[in-house]
Design a protein around this nucleic acid. Structure first.
Lengths: 237, 237
DNA sequence: CAATGATCGATTGTTGACAATCTGCGCGCA
DNA sequence: TGCGCGCAGATTGTCAACAATCGATCATTG
């Protein structure tokens, strides 16, 4: 489409060129590769190598990497190298504590405006998650759970909140994916989300806040057991 | 130092070359120029122009701009142009509502660990802010107020929270600066911060939460009056 | 044998030139 | 007069080559 990159059939991830720029698609592809575990936490990512794999030059690729650095998925040392981030126990703890705060805030924002569309959307995503869990498809359940929670954030219409959720989601998914690869079966159990959705549609905001706090605490606890003492990767930020 | 940018005495902002990369310093300089009002909200920023002003090529400059876009200070349209963001009433509302949530969370995190160092640091920054207000130095008071609140976030040691505050601070400062330039005298009154600090050092967390909520509500209200109907800039995100 | 300094490979940082895209404007035409 | 069309200017997107820095290796020296 541009610059001089003629066809790039060899690119590992991108299939079509969307009419716009490369950067976003490289970022998406690289993010997917990291979250998918194709590149392990702690592993080094080299600009030239990736540029070849994606079939682009280092310019756009650098910008994509910079974006992932902002998302907390990569860590760069000037003139030396860039690595996939390794999450420590404290990092995961921070993610979960932040989620409690943000998600309660999200429900406070939307509480009075939970119309039919919201209720249906929430139930639909809960059903999708339930189906993934019943099918024991862990990879899909991770995505489904992220979409369930993401739907709540989106529903608030609070752009800053959504942006903040976006900035956390990557690290959360990185942890979930690593946990899943290491432990096989992952966390989300049916009953927990059943209660969560039930209360989200109830009239008792206080009870929902407690449920969210407990929900996250459960996830966090099971989390720490897995991580204790050994960060997922080598490099911390 | 590198590449081929020999001396750059003509650069508008950077004075010394710090031994590391350009990007961070360009970002700092450009951010300062925006927050300082040298580039007005809504105004277009052209890569080639800025590159000349900073004495670097477009590569590093693009990365710096990309960072400011992530911070919500710039808005880019592919192949068309990049503008300083204009904040709407809703945007400012979002910033303030987010601050309430984040700051209450910050105090929850640190509440049990408010040692002598924290108390002294908080008082010191409050004194500095008070001095700026008494001297009617609005520009300095903006910085002082940001440092007061920033100190609280830093004190939590919660990296994710600090990062989130960082991602909001720029937009808040952009609004405060624009408000100040348009209205002359800005918001922060002594009594409000006196109460804030007093309660932050008290034993009544619930009361502090109320104070924070009110504090922000006051700032937000005065804010909306100024902004009603006319965003600070031309382009929204 | 330990400490020190030079060298080399690997990787990122920077640059200048070229290509693609968008926007506005003038022109022909019904 | 109103409207589509194409052209030119401006701006961003991309590329390939070059420079700077870092880390490890290895020879040198006391």
């Amino acid at each position: 489409m541009s610059g001089g990159a003629k066809d790039r059939a060899g690119g590992s991830v991108l299939a079509r060129v969307p009419k716009s720029t490369f950067r976003a698609h490289i970022a998406d592809g690289l993010r997917a590769a990291i979250l998918n575990g194709d590149i392990e936490p702690g592993a080094q990512v080299v600009e030239t190598t990736l540029a070849d794999q994606f079939g682009v030059s280092r310019g756009p690729l650098r910008e994509a990497m910079r974006q992932l650095i902002d998302e907390g998925l990569l860590v760069a040392v000037p003139y030396t190298g860039t690595h996939v981030v390794g999450l420590s126990v404290d990092d995961v703890r921070e993610i979960y504590s932040m989620r409690v705060t943000l998600e309660i805030f999200a429900f406070e924002q939307i509480w009075a405006r939970r119309d039919q569309a919201f209720r249906q959307g929430l139930v639909a995503r809960h059903d999708a998650l339930t189906a993934c869990i019943d099918a024991q498809d862990d990879a899909a359940s991770i995505v489904a759970e992220l979409q369930l929670h993401g739907f709540v954030y989106e529903a608030t219409g609070h752009k800053l909140l959504i942006r903040t959720w976006d900035s956390i989601r990557g690290r959360l998914q990185l942890y979930w994916a690593a946990h899943h690869r290491a432990h096989g079966i992952r966390g989300p159990r049916r009953d927990g989300h059943d209660r969560y959705v039930e209360m989200a549609l109830s009239d008792d905001l206080a009870a929902l806040k407690v449920e969210i706090t407990d929900h996250m605490a459960r996830g966090g606890r099971q989390t720490e057991e897995f991580l204790r003492g050994r960060p997922v990767g080598a490099v911390a930020d």
